[in-house]
Design a protein around this nucleic acid. Structure first.
Length: 455
RNA sequence: GUGGUUGUAGUUCAGUUGGUUAGAACGCCUGAUUGUGGUUCAGGAGGUCGUGGGUUCGAGUCCCAUCUUCCACCCCA
């Protein structure tokens, strides 16, 4: 066998026992909230057929999809395509039959269409799985990461959007991250703006520029708009929007004014007003209407969401409404959907930085028994059965090593109690239970311990 | 994909204009303590200086390539 250096691809990570305890804590909280809102879980394969994914995320997205190298005859076809003076990228897209999924929304749309006869709508699903992007890694940006998606498909009602806001609030409340800001916008407003300033066909250009407002001054953005081919007149008309400020209501008033003549814009204003009103009625104070919020994913058509935290550089949740994602897979009727995705890995990084993980997620064993020999071990095995039936996590050190070594092991593993059963305890039929945090110890019967620590 | 940045012990980092045998702290191992971890004390192990080339009498230090890390653009969870 050939030797190789141990290592993993860039932008990927191993998760040890401590990290998994924390990660599962995040997943459990998120899952619990999803279930409380009536969503059910699905899973889809790590890979999809390439044509399912290509063209759904825009040009940049296509480039970031991991294609799986073809095998056998297809591999020779790749060679032929390359010889036809194709770029390697085009050749790869043409010949790779499979690719790793880039997100969970597009595979979900594929799933819905494929199983449309078995699904009753509106279909509320959640899905927690890894996705892969051929990105250049940075802080909070990985090439393999988990998304926690909730989507409702087959309903136009804005109540779905409202429920998603509730879910975001509940999740971040549970995770002890109350400082998040939920940013809202609507693609219809963005379309309306483009229409109102007479640049209907340049909506993407305008939204990309608007998105940069939080990074560069207005003058720079104006310059960029000009470079992107937007007329001076249109840029002039855009200024009230670029200089938006004040409360959500004040911003909405200004926008409504600018969009008075745009049908689609008015629809967007109507939707946004409803959502802001509902959020206000729930007493939420951290909702921000931001026209600059664009979100690159091509398929969004209505509301768009993004959650940020002051101590983290990038968004930790994002999503929106898509009207026709199932259409491209040949759905019988038009199915509108809306959903969001929690970025578990970014939430993990943020919570670690803020030291928000409860200590309890790190201990896996309640009682570790010191091994004093065969006779003692035989008795401990019986007692452990009783303890486990009472819901107490317990284990026996497998070797009769030195006490010091066993105690150190217990300490390193962060167990709550050490159980000692030697000759004295066998005679008394009791267990010496030591609290590893306080150092106190007492002699108790197994029944008394079940009573004390049992679930 | 473009531009920049980082890499030295298990970890975090020192290491002078290129010059003997590459250091510290923490961690790890052993003992003080044969039924007590976390504290204390004494001792010990551990490095092909990311990898591969090159310049030089001599390279952790300079040059090139490559990988990795982080950052900006782009995009995004």
């Amino acid at each position: 066998m050939s030797m190789s250096k141990a290592g993993i691809p860039k932008g990927t990570r191993d998760f040890g026992p401590v990290e998994m305890g924390r990660r599962n804590y995040i997943f459990d909280q998120i899952k619990e909230v999803f279930r409380l809102h009536g969503f059910s879980q699905i899973e889809t394969p790590a890979m999809e057929r390439t044509d399912v994914l290509l063209g759904k995320y825009g040009e940049e997205g296509d480039r970031l999809i991991f294609k799986i190298m073809p095998r056998g005859r297809k591999l020779n076809q790749l060679k032929t395509e390359l010889e036809k003076d194709q770029t390697a990228e085009v050749a790869a897209n043409k010949t790779a039959e499979e690719a790793l999924r880039y997100d969970l929304t597009v595979p979900f749309a594929r799933f819905v269409v494929q199983h449309q006869n078995d699904i009753s709508f509106p279909f509320k699903r959640y899905q927690i799985q890894p996705v892969w992007r051929a990105d250049k890694p940075q802080k909070g940006r990985y090439r393999e990461f988990y998304q926690c998606d909730v989507d409702c498909i087959g309903s136009d009602s804005l109540l779905n959007e409202i429920e998603l806001i509730n879910i975001m609030q509940e999740v971040y409340e549970r995770l002890n991250l109350p400082d998040v800001t939920i940013k809202l916008n609507n693609r219809k407003i963005l379309a309306g703006i483009a229409e109102a300033i007479g640049e209907k066909d340049n909506m993407m250009e305008i939204t990309i520029a608007l998105d940069k407002l939080d990074k560069m001054p207005v003058e720079k953005v104006n310059e960029e708009l000009k470079n992107r081919g937007i007329s001076e007149e249109a840029i002039e008309k855009l200024q009230p929007i670029m200089n938006l400020s004040g409360s959500n209501e004040q911003k909405m008033d200004t926008i409504a004014d600018v969009l008075a003549d745009s049908e689609i814009g008015q629809k967007g204003v109507e939707e946004m007003t409803f959502m802001l009103g509902q959020a206000d009625a729930m007493g939420y104070k951290n909702i921000d209407f931001e026209v600059t919020l664009a979100r690159g994913l091509n398929y969004y058509t209505g509301a768009i969401f993004e959650v940020t935290h002051p101590d983290f550089p990038s968004s930790i949740t994002g999503g929106g409404r898509y009207d026709d994602l199932t259409g491209v897979f040949g759905a019988k009727e038009k199915l509108s959907g809306v959903g969001i995705s929690f970025g578990a890995d970014r939430i993990y990084d943020l919570m670690l930085q803020k030291e928000l993980f409860p200590e309890s997620v790190e201990n896996v064993t309640d009682i570790l028994f010191v091994n004093f020999g065969d006779n003692e071990a035989a008795q401990v095995l019986k007692w452990m059965k009783q303890l486990r039936e009472a819901g107490i996590k317990t284990e026996l050190y497998p070797d009769t090593a030195k006490m010091k070594k066993q105690m150190k092991f217990a300490n390193d593993k962060n167990v709550r109690f050490v159980g000692m059963v030697g000759e004295d305890e066998l005679n008394k039929q009791e267990i010496t239970l030591k609290n590893m945090k306080t150092g106190e110890q007492e002699s108790l019967t197994v029944e008394a311990i079940c009573e004390k620590l049992g679930k």
